[in-house]
C-alpha cells in the first residue's frame, strides 16, 4: 500500500493554509521527540491514527496496511536492541546458541518502538494532508537546498513511475504464464531489470517534458488562494493543548 494510492485531495483540511495544517503536527512532533513516556507515545499514535481516518476518510484497514512497512523495520530494529546472544538466562536455546532479553536494553527498545510508532503516525497524518508540492514548499521555506528539493520531487515521481511500471509488467508477465513453478525466480529477475530500465526511461522523459516547460533550477507550483476563518485555528490548537496537557500529566503524575 502506497500513500499515493489512498491520497485524497478533498480531505477535510484541504482548504486550509499550510501553516494551519502545520499546527496539527509540528508542536506535537517536538513533544514526542522530547519525552520519554511510552504511554504518551502510545496516546499520540492512537490520536493521529484516528485523526488521519477522520480527516482524510481513509479506512482503518488501509491505514493499518500503510503501517506494515515501517512496522517491519521498527520491530526488526527494536529486536536488535532488545535481544542478546549467549544470555545467562536464555528464553530460547538452539545448538549451543542461547537467546535472551538484554535487561538494560529492553526499556530502550520499548521506548524506541513507541516513539517510532508515534512519529510514523504523525508523519502519515502529515503526508495524507499535504501534497508533495506543499511539502516541497515547506522545505524551501526552511531553506533546504534547491537540489535536494528537486531530488525529493523527482524521487517521489520516480517511485510513482516505478510502481506503475511494476504493476503493468507484472500483469503482462502473469498473462504469459510467468511465476509458475521453477520459473518464479527467473520471472522476478526479469521483472526487476525491466522495471528499473523502464522507470529510468520514463523519468528522463519527464525531465524532457519539464524542460520544455521552462524548468529552471526551481520547482515552483502555485496553490489556489485559501480562504479560511480564524476559527479554523481552534481545532489544531485544541488538539495540541490536550496532548500537551496529557504530556504534563504523564510526566508529573507518572500515569
Amino acid at each position: 500500500m502506497l500513500i499515493s494510492q489512498i491520497y485524497r485531495h478533498q480531505h477535510k483540511l484541504s482548504q486550509l493554509p499550510i501553516w494551519i495544517r502545520a499546527i496539527y503536527v509540528l508542536p506535537c512532533f517536538v513533544l514526542v521527540l522530547c519525552n520519554k513516556s511510552e504511554l504518551f507515545n502510545a496516546l499520540v499514535s492512537v490520536v493521529y491514527l484516528a485523526l488521519s481516518i477522520v480527516v482524510t476518510g481513509v479506512s482503518l484497514r488501509q491505514m493499518l496496511l500503510l503501517f506494515r512497512a515501517p512496522l517491519f523495520f521498527i520491530v526488526t530494529g527494536c529486536l536488535t536492541i532488545a535481544l542478546t546472544f549467549n544470555d545467562p538466562h536464555p528464553f530460547f536455546t538452539y545448538k549451543g546458541f542461547s537467546f535472551g532479553w538484554a535487561q538494560g536494553n529492553l526499556s530502550v527498545a520499548v521506548q524506541a518502538f513507541s516513539r517510532s510508532m508515534a512519529l510514523v503516525s504523525m508523519v502519515y497524518f502529515g503526508l495524507l494532508t499535504h501534497t508533495i508540492s506543499e511539502i516541497a514548499e515547506a522545505l524551501k521555506y526552511i531553506r533546504v537546498p534547491k537540489i535536494l528539493i528537486e531530488l525529493f520531487i523527482l524521487t517521489f515521481k520516480f517511485i510513482e513511475n516505478l510502481m506503475r511500471s511494476a504493476q503493468q509488467m507484472y500483469t503482462a508477465q502473469k498473462c504469459r504464464l510467468a511465476y509458475n513453478g521453477r520459473k518464479r525466480l527467473k520471472s522476478l529477475s526479469i521483472l526487476v531489470f525491466a522495471i528499473l530500465r523502464n522507470a529510468i526511461a520514463q523519468t528522463s522523459q519527464l525531465q524532457v517534458a519539464m524542460e520544455s516547460r521552462l524548468l529552471d533550477d526551481k520547482f515552483d507550483f502555485i496553490h489556489p488562494k485559501y480562504k479560511y476563518h480564524p476559527f479554523d485555528v481552534i481545532w489544531p490548537t485544541m488538539i495540541t493543548y490536550i496532548l500537551f496537557g496529557s504530556f504534563l500529566i504523564i510526566r508529573y503524575y507518572g500515569w
Binding site: S133, Q205, M210, R213, F221, I222
Partner: peptide, 23 residues
C-alpha cells in the same frame, strides 16, 4: 507529449497548470 503521464508532475491539476507559468 504523446503520453500524458510523461508530462504530469504536480500533485493537483491546479498546480500542474501553474508549473510552466511559475517558471
Amino acid at each position: 507529449f504523446q503520453d500524458s503521464d510523461h508530462q504530469l508532475i504536480a500533485p493537483t491539476v491546479y498546480e500542474e497548470i501553474s508549473f510552466g507559468l511559475c517558471n
